[in-house]
């Protein structure tokens, strides 16, 4: 309740509580509003992820993520999920530094707040950098765009008839669900031929279009959240530095609120990571 008394003597019109005798939720209105905003934002993401799931359920085949996300900077290939695991670590680490910033705020340690927020911003920017690299590779090297998805997966067992130097030799066997990448040469797709179990000769086909579109759309929307988070963090860090939050005498509540947002971005990533990279 000490918090409450502080609010009542806050001279800022916008941040003061128009409250009666008590705050039933023992939280300031600002924090509550942030929680409810995050709840509604969670439903926005839920809308996207449910749409993703629905389209995935409606596709006969879906590329295997271990195959799609297997490149690392420095021209390293076929190391499945390593890069995205690093990205996840970066985001988790930035969440951890954010918790530290909030804790320092509770002790009115201005230097601590600014230091840990700065680390958080670095973490956010690194994550965005990783994402930029990932997108560049997917679009530039593998030609996956929102219109085309070269990652297909077999719907039947069979054997390759020809190899083209991309690690596939003639005679290689594959099973239902195995992924392949349709390469592009001189602006044309160059699919491989194969023989299925029934003996018919077939050609690899591009994967479901929705895969690329959904990937770029949803990770992009998440990345946009990270980007706006970084911008807000930057503003709030500068404000904290200037000392205006210390004057408000409310345990750096602004830092706490942006902290909630930042953890939420991390939370969303848990599910984006789950549905795009793991399942």
């Amino acid at each position: 309740m000490a918090d409450h008394a502080i609010h009542n003597h806050d001279s800022h019109d916008n941040s003061r509580l128009w409250d009666g005798a008590k705050e039933p939720f023992k939280a300031s209105y600002g924090k509550l509003m942030m929680w409810y905003f995050l709840l509604s934002d969670a439903f926005t993401f839920a809308g996207f992820l449910i749409a993703y799931g629905t389209l995935r359920f409606s596709s006969p085949a879906w590329p295997v993520p271990d195959f799609v996300f297997s490149s690392l900077p420095g021209d390293i290939h076929h190391k499945p999920l390593i890069f995205v695991t690093i990205m996840t670590f970066v985001l988790i680490a930035s969440s951890v530094t954010m918790v530290r910033a909030v804790q320092e705020g509770h002790r009115y340690n201005k230097k601590g707040v600014v230091f840990w927020m700065f680390l958080t911003i670095i973490g956010g920017l690194s994550f965005l950098g990783c994402q930029a690299w990932e997108w560049t590779t997917l679009i530039g090297k593998e030609h996956m765009t929102i219109h085309n998805n070269p990652f297909g997966s077999h719907t039947e067992n069979g054997v390759y008839l020809e190899g083209d130097g991309h690690d596939i030799k003639a005679g290689d066997q594959f099973k239902v669900g195995d992924s392949y990448l349709v390469h592009k040469h001189d602006g044309h797709w160059a699919p491989l031929s194969y023989k299925n179990e029934a003996g018919a000769t077939k050609t690899q086909q591009l994967g479901p279009k929705a895969f690329g579109a959904l990937f770029f759309f949803i990770t992009g929307f998440h990345g946009f959240h990270v980007f706006s988070g970084v911008v807000f963090l930057l503003i709030i860090m500068i404000n904290a530095w200037s000392g205006i939050y210390a004057k408000r005498n409310n345990k750096y509540e602004m830092v706490e609120k942006i902290g909630l947002y930042w953890h939420f971005v991390d939370l969303v990533w848990v599910f984006v990571f789950l549905v795009f990279y793991l399942l």
Partner: peptide
């Protein structure tokens, strides 16, 4: 509900003659 729907679309498309329309989109 949504996922059941997604599955239904797939099943109905599989019953339709030109299934391959949906998986192949080589431009």
């Amino acid at each position: 509900a949504f996922f059941t729907e997604g599955k239904t679309w797939k099943e109905w498309r599989a019953r339709s003659k030109d299934t391959n329309l949906y998986i192949s989109n080589i431009p």
